[in-house]
Design a protein around this nucleic acid. Structure first.
Length: 590
RNA sequence: GCGCCCAUAGCUCAACUGGAUAGAGCAUCGCCCUUCUAAGGCGAGGGUUUCAGGUUCGAAUCCUGAUGGGCGUGCCA
């Protein structure tokens, strides 16, 4: 319907140009909106107000001209009535039968209803979560997971060719700290007396992995504690202590005493256990990836070196203080960035440059990174690197997610992976369920700060609006089932043919609401805003509940009955489609 | 200090990206189950959109400044 109005208005603008009211060369953007208030009709345009400057006439006079042109048209499509209102809005009232046409569309397209081709098949790589595999996911990661997964689904429906990827940071110091932590716990299990480093990973999961290590390898990896700790810099809290130096020395000792092969054994057990746990956790959260991309593979395949070489050749690398620096300031970054440290080790940034370059080389048109907003300062340097390597920095879209601030009993919770004090995603899922958690996270705009009250989420889970939507879906199932039980099963063909029997306000309201679904998808997709879907679904569910209370669906008169059941079937389909984008189930029963 | 993000009902958030009387949920108060699921519906109260200017037919939305909060500002990842 909206498209129809746009077409008509395009004709009108041409007509006004012909009449000399508007300059011939003027380009006009025609804007048709859904009205908020029923008194303003179904659709409205601000065209007259937009043109007032171009035409040099007051908006209301222009509006009258526009309306008279529309009224002179032979074919006015589904327009029932046109009105001028307020400062110069033109309101369109549409014919009812045109409003119900969408019901048939929904029921024939089913799961495909709402799909559009905004993406034109362009390939997009959505990278999200990508949490370091040094511990279980916590509720902070949950938001990125829920958001990223929903954005990916949304883009898919909007006609993009989507791949989802998790970047596994399986190289670097944090992983060494993890492996060393596991090994030290293992030594303790073997009976060695030692003080655990203040900077090591202290969570319970470390004990579990070290127990596993002991089960698999007995005491073959055991070394005397005094040997491990001799020559190691003191830990924080002791005289001349330095926690960073302390842990680095321990890592060196672990590598040294164990030897490359055995160190690798500990390292991979830790990595694989945690990664396996993360995968399982995300699957339980209805979040899946096409690809798990290893940072180590990037290093080992020489992609990082190749990328640095490329920058070097472009003259964007220089040496200072024994380290290699990338001239990111040339592309607007605040300062140049180190890519190779004076100890010869490549920085995380170096592999990230390579990673993004690699993504484009794999042929993706658009790269989407979902990051925690604490990494926002990182964007300019990555874009700088892309520019320096002659790739289009516009291809990269970084979506920032504010981390949720957790509250329990009205108090803010501090969270840190290192200290092992955090609420895990798994815990949250088990308490409130995957559906409620997914919805809760995605209800808010991603860049909006979010307060996550655990008590509320857990204890009052029934108040989570996801149930409201699911309830609408289940209710419809039940009604259709009841009708069938009474021998009055929905006859779709008959129902479609009887849609003109629907004349209640709630019924046209629902139809109008259904028609808004495709445009909601399109708008949400280009803005990367899945919360719009959440709000849409709440509205639609409200429409359904309201309708449910307003009248009986299973009535004797077969035309009315079939028409009503047809309408609610369409509503059910759209609820299901929308929930699928959010990764939430659509239950038949509740 | 500098940079980025944010500020809307008592609380948590929307507002079709500049449109008409700023809307929902929770909380509070009334009403509705002999009717297809009450995890529901109907209604009431609640606002100087942090503040001060500016841009224009029109501002919660854009610009400037102030105030308050979050984050960043490593040869960490």
């Amino acid at each position: 319907m909206k498209q129809q109005i746009v077409q008509i208005l395009t004709q009108v603008v041409q007509q006004l140009k012909n009449e000399g009211v508007l300059p011939e060369e003027a380009s006009v953007r025609i804007n048709v909106e859904n009205t908020r208030d029923k008194a303003h009709g179904d659709l409205a345009t601000n065209l007259a107000m937009m043109l007032t400057k171009l035409a040099g006439q007051p908006p209301r006079t222009l509006a009258e001209k526009i309306v008279s042109v529309i009224e002179s048209l032979a074919d006015r499509g589904a327009i029932e009535k046109v009105e001028i209102a307020g400062p110069g809005f033109i309101n369109f009232f549409m014919k009812d039968d045109a409003k119900f046409a969408v019901v048939e569309q929904v029921l024939t397209q089913q799961a495909d209803f709402g799909r559009c081709n905004a993406g034109q098949g362009r390939s997009v790589l959505v990278e999200f979560v990508s949490a370091n595999p040094t511990g279980p996911l916590h509720v902070g990661h949950g938001r990125g997971a829920a958001y990223g997964a929903s954005v990916a689904n949304l883009l898919e429906v909007a006609g993009f060719d989507v791949s989802r990827e998790y970047y596994v940071n399986d190289a670097g110091r944090q992983m060494d700290i993890l492996a060393t932590s596991v090994w030290l716990r293992y030594l303790q299990l073997c009976g060695e007396e030692l003080t655990f480093p203040s900077n090591g990973y202290k969570g319970d999961y470390i004990f579990e992995i070290s127990e596993e290590l002991r089960r698999e390898h007995g005491e073959t990896l055991r070394k005397p504690a005094f040997e491990v700790f001799t020559g190691v810099c003191a830990d924080e809290g002791q005289t001349d202590g330095d926690k960073e130096k302390h842990i680095d020395d321990l890592i060196a000792k672990a590598k040294n005493l164990l030897g490359a092969h055995h160190y690798e054994t500990v390292f991979s057990l830790a990595l694989n256990t945690i990664l396996g746990d993360i995968k399982e956790d995300l699957e339980g959260f209805n979040v899946t990836f096409e690809n798990w991309f290893s940072e180590r593979s990037l290093m080992e395949s020489g992609v990082v070196d190749a990328a640095l070489e490329k920058l070097q050749q472009a003259g964007k690398i220089y040496e200072k203080g024994g380290a290699l620096w990338f001239r990111s300031t040339e592309y607007g970054d605040e300062k140049d960035r180190v890519v190779v440290r004076d100890n010869g080790l490549k920085t995380y940034f170096a592999s990230d440059i390579a990673y993004h370059f690699n993504k484009l080389e794999r042929g993706f048109d658009i790269l989407i990174d979902v990051w925690g907003s604490d990494h926002h300062g990182y964007i300019p340097r990555v874009k700088a690197a892309m520019q320096a390597m002659d790739t289009n920095p516009e291809a990269l879209q970084v979506l920032l997610v504010q981390f949720a601030v957790l509250y329990r009993g009205g108090e803010k919770l501090a969270m840190s992976t290192r200290s092992g004090q955090f609420v895990t995603l798994r815990e949250l899922r088990e308490e409130v369920g995957s559906d409620a958690a997914r919805f809760f996270y995605v209800q808010r705009k991603s860049e909006q700060h979010m307060d996550f009250d655990l008590d509320l989420a857990k204890s009052q889970s029934n108040e989570n609006p996801v149930y409201y939507i699911q309830y609408a879906h289940a209710r419809i199932s039940r009604v259709l089932e009841q009708a069938a039980e009474k021998g009055l099963a929905l006859d779709l063909e008959k129902g479609m043919a009887s849609l003109e029997k629907l004349e209640l306000e709630a019924e046209t309201g629902l139809a109008v609401q259904l028609a808004k679904y495709p445009e909601t998808i399109a708008r949400a997709a280009v803005a990367y805003e899945p919360h719009q879907i959440a709000y849409y679904l709440k509205d639609l569910a409200h429409g359904l509940h309201s309708y449910y209370n307003a009248c009986q669906f299973i009535v004797d008169e077969s035309e009315v009955r079939n028409a009503r059941l047809t309408l609610i079937s369409a509503v059910q389909q759209v609820l299901k489609n929308g929930l699928a984008i959010l990764g939430v189930s659509a239950p038949e029963k509740m």
